[in-house]
Design a protein around this nucleic acid. Sequence first.
DNA 1: TGCAAAGTTTCCAATATTAGAAACAAGATG
DNA 2: CATCTTGTTTCTAATATTGGAAACTTTGCA
Lengths: 106, 106
Amino acid sequence: METNSLKRYELKAEMFKALSHPMRILMLDKLKERPWCVCELATEVGIDKSVASKHLSQLKTAGLIDDEKRGTLVEYRLVAPCVLELAACAEGSVLQNRRKRLETGG
Amino acid sequence: METNSLKRYELKAEMFKALSHPMRILMLDKLKERPWCVCELATEVGIDKSVASKHLSQLKTAGLIDDEKRGTLVEYRLVAPCVLELAACAEGSVLQNRRKRLETGG
DNA sequence: TGCAAAGTTTCCAATATTAGAAACAAGATG
DNA sequence: CATCTTGTTTCTAATATTGGAAACTTTGCA
């Protein structure tokens, strides 16, 4: 297997890594409703603004959200809502499977 | 924000974490073609069988793949192909966005 | 029984991620 | 200019992830 083959999956993997933290999914869910600035969103989800800023930065790097400066505020907005619907789809099929496994202890 | 709200996203986050490693996406891509046993797949993607086993274990825990013992072999098979199509869709929208950002240095 | 093959688990060292505090930068406003 | 607000970056310690070697289990077979 060539190194190149693995390389083909790196960007995709980074996108999934951005989605791999419950707090970041929660933030995306909030951003689905409307744009938020950092402080406001940090308060809403109950974390420090520096932590929120870093999470948002990761989501932006992954291409999931975008930002726009508005005076002293930075407004973040969802770029790819389809990703969340995909997550919902996954919840339907994959997570059912996973829950079943957890229950049966398999 | 209640702890419960964040808890709602943990299973979803774990699924995405399972997808957050390029090697695991590559392995899923192989499993999309047909079922593989551990040694065979490990050789195909060029890693140690113990590493392959651990990656497959993570994918199974996430509910993305399933396994079946066949004598001394363990055959792994894809459970939720939709997830990979999801990834492909994401490649179309999100990754384009991300590549643009990488090029412009934003 | 003895041995080989397939997988899993354990151990280790290297690396990455995370939260939060503190320092810092950039606008807004009096 | 002084200061406040917003947001990012830096620093630290705790925790998690990773690959590979080695030990181990299980199954098949002579």
